[in-house]
């Protein structure tokens, strides 16, 4: 099988294989490493990671599908995740989501055709003191009202 990742990604995974008392523990970190390079976890990537760890592709697929942070399809360059759980909902999360949908012309769960944005409502992000709260890639924003949201979006233009 040809290696479907960059040599440095392959090396990073080799290093992960020696980090843990048992090799299997390298699976989640290896999936993160692949996703960082590719933006998502494809079938081909799962087969590759499976062969590195020494488990079946089906086992890897089972793990990937269990965790929400592994993306099976490409997400936008700006992946917007809006918390919808109760403390955020009590503080206007629904209004924030509605505003985002209108502003971006997108539905919940969609990736825009130009690949710039993806929008997803997610469960509790553990920042209820900053409700309504959202994450864009690995950056955190909260509390966010409509005006603040527009300002954030402007910064992404």
């Amino acid at each position: 099988m040809t290696i479907p990742v960059r040599p440095e990604t392959d090396r990073k995974i080799d290093e992960l294989l020696t980090r843990f008392p048992m090799k299997g523990s390298a699976l989640l970190p290896a999936l993160y490493v692949v996703q960082e390079e590719k933006g998502h976890v494809s079938d081909e990537s799962m087969e590759y990671v499976a062969s590195k760890i020494g488990v079946s592709p089906a086992f890897v697929a089972g793990v990937v599908s269990f965790y929400t942070m592994f993306h099976r399809r490409p997400v936008g360059r700006h992946h917007i995740q809006v918390c919808r759980t109760l403390p955020c909902a009590l503080s206007g999360a629904d209004d924030l989501m509605a505003h985002l949908k209108t502003r971006l012309g997108m539905k919940d769960g969609e990736t825009r055709a130009d690949g710039k944005f993806s929008l997803a409502s997610v469960e509790c992000l553990g920042a209820c003191d900053r409700a309504p709260f959202l994450q864009i890639n690995d950056r955190e924003h909260g509390p966010v009202d409509a005006a603040k949201m527009d300002e954030i979006l402007k910064g992404l233009e």
Partner: peptide, 10 residues
Amino acid sequence: IIIYRGAGAY
């Protein structure tokens, strides 16, 4: 100590 990141599962 090894830091291990979860991947989104309550």
